[in-house]
Amino acid sequence: MKMNRSIIPLLIIWSLAPLVWQLYTSFCTDQALVMPFAEHAQRWTLAHYQSVLNSDPPFLNYLFNSLFAGVLSTLLTLILALPASYSLSKLNQRTATLIKALLIGCALFPYVLLFLALLEVARFLQLGNSLIALSIPYAALSQPLAVLLLTNAFADLPTELEDAARVEGLTLLQRFRWILLPLIAPAIASTSILVFLFSWNEYPIALTWISDSSKLTLPVAMARIAGSSIHSVPYGPYAAATVLGSIPLILLVMAFQKPIVSGLTSGAVKG
């Protein structure tokens, strides 16, 4: 019982300590970072935040790019996955099981191995440096997870609800609008948030598709700072960028922790 009570603060420290260190770093002057125990005329500063926010392109630009790519790929994912998962929940057992096995296989696949072929596609079709184009591979890569989660949600709906609507004369589209979508809204919410997180954080494809610095997404912009040199990374401004880049995600996780967990576990239970 005592173990149980002490595990919670331990877990919180474990998860948050590195972030707190970044927060601390972001407010320290460079001198204070190099010699933390010496006396400094000035220990605290906002200079790192100023340099990050006033850089060219400004840091908020990256946040906006990630947001744009994330929202667009989430929408595209849903447009593709909703009809597919409805269909999968209605198909006969044997076909559905086969397709689900295929989906699980694809979900397991470390997609980083695909970047070269996707890069070739981007070159061939001139899709590089476009955030809109970037949402296409994101939506496609999100299909296995999204279809599996939404199929479970559709399969859990009582069939009589849809039968009743058919007797009432609702077409398939009307049934989607009035019955199916409102009833699986919780599953759509958890799917959306998981797909959004994937797109927001995706690195290898964004790294190879986007080179124009005004179009970089957050993870690539962060890595670019690192790419300059191993030893002369500007840690102060970088910590400030980490803090700024983390805030939207922390807010997102705080707001949506329930659908995130329920989405992840419903995938685990049925899979």
Partner: peptide, 17 residues
């Protein structure tokens, strides 16, 4: 189709939205 048949149906689970 069901819509074209002029059927009134009551379901076991009532099937209310």
């Amino acid at each position: 189709t069901p819509a074209e048949r002029s059927i009134g149906m009551v379901f076991q689970s009532y099937a209310l939205l």
